[in-house]
């Protein structure tokens, strides 16, 4: 709507504002333009550059320059050389995601239905870890899981760990750290879904002689599905690319794909690093597509 049209008096307003309030015209494009350009130049173009870098001849170097030789072998080298790390990344990220669902679902459920007047406080506590640095919090786990920490003492007393068993520098530590770091990303979307759920539906389930378990399975879970899908993606994707937890809480035997990509870039092996990075992205896109399709169809069943 132009400024001239706005001067039309209320009685003369030609277009009654209906369901679709959206305006046509150039302004929309102009508003979108700066941000879109930024994303184009610093997100889309870099992705294309990454793909082309992954096909450079690996014998070049950053300062001498690279030659574009469509060197598809970079991908073979990447997958053959770093297959275990790739597999481990998905294994750890998958385990952390499952753990985050098991811990996060009851928490989100409790906040949505059982917390009463403590609801806001509990929500603030869920985001409170974000108030301080991700790296420093991960370092705290070094102390908590360390051999001098009380967790190791308890586990040893309970005979869960042998007298010289460790928690730190194990896959368990890495998965614990990953779960911890991404748990809020699971809880918040789950809570958003559960909060919209009308509690009368649960009562209706009980009235119709469903056991609590059946009500949960047939009512709560399907309605929480959008939050569950969003939460698992927000946990799994960053966890699969993370290398901080593996580096700070693990050992060389727990290295994930992120560690390798970072080190290859730092060492200047750009083509192989880029190939590995593209492989990771492609694998994630494939997994996410299958997952979203399947969870979408399950929702309909």
């Amino acid at each position: 709507m132009s400024a001239a049209a706005a001067h039309v008096g209320p009685g003369e307003q030609q277009v009654p504002q209906g369901q679709d309030e959206r305006k046509r015209g150039l302004t929309g494009y102009l508003l979108l333009l700066p941000g879109a350009l930024w994303l184009l130049v610093f997100f889309v173009v870099p992705l294309v550059t990454l793909i082309s870098t992954s096909l450079y001849d690996p014998s070049g170097s950053v300062f001498a320059g690279y030659e574009m030789t469509f060197h598809w072998r970079n991908y073979v080298d990447a997958v053959q050389g770093y297959g275990p790390q790739l597999w481990r990344s998905f294994l750890y990220a998958g385990t952390a995601t499952v753990a985050a669902v098991l811990l996060g679902f009851p928490l989100a459920y409790a906040i949505a239905f059982k917390a009463g007047r403590w609801k806001n406080l509990m929500l603030i506590l869920v985001i409170a870890p974000f108030f301080t640095s991700f790296l420093i919090r991960t370092l705290s786990w070094q102390m908590l899981l360390g051999d001098n920490g009380w967790l190791v003492d308890i586990f040893r007393t309970l005979q869960i760990l042998g007298p010289d068993g460790h928690l730190l520098a194990t896959p368990f530590a890495v998965v614990t750290g990953l779960t911890y770091n991404f748990l809020p990303f699971m809880v918040l979307p789950l809570y958003a879904s559960l909060e919209k759920l009308d509690p009368r539906l649960l009562e209706a389930g009980a009235d119709l002689y469903a056991t609590p378990l059946t009500t949960f399975r047939k009512v709560t879970l399907p309605l929480a599905m959008p939050g569950l899908v969003a939460g698992t993606l927000l946990t799994f994707i960053p966890a699969a690319g993370d290398y901080i937890n593996s580096e700070l809480l693990g050992t060389p035997n727990t290295r994930m794909i992120g560690n390798e990509i970072q080190d290859l870039f730092a060492a200047g092996s750009y083509p192989v690093a880029a190939a590995l990075s593209v492989t990771l992205m492609a694998a994630i896109v494939a997994l996410v597509t299958v997952y979203v399709r399947r969870s979408g169809s399950e929702e309909l069943v």
């Binding site: 979108l32 879109a36 994303l39 184009l40 610093f42 997100f43 889309v44 173009v45 870099p46 992705l47 550059t49 990454l50 082309s52 870098t53 950053v62 690279y66 993606l233 994707i237 960053p238 699969a240 690319g241 993370d242 290398y243 794909i257 992120g258 990509i261 970072q262 870039f265 750009y270 690093a273 880029a274 990075s277 990771l280 992205m281 994630i284 996410v288």
Partner: peptide
Amino acid sequence: TANVAIFLPMASPEIVLGSSLLALFVS
């Protein structure tokens, strides 16, 4: 398209975003 372009950076692992930018800056 705009929606996808806005959503994708949030759905990409940071290591991929970072390595793409580095590849761009270097080339």
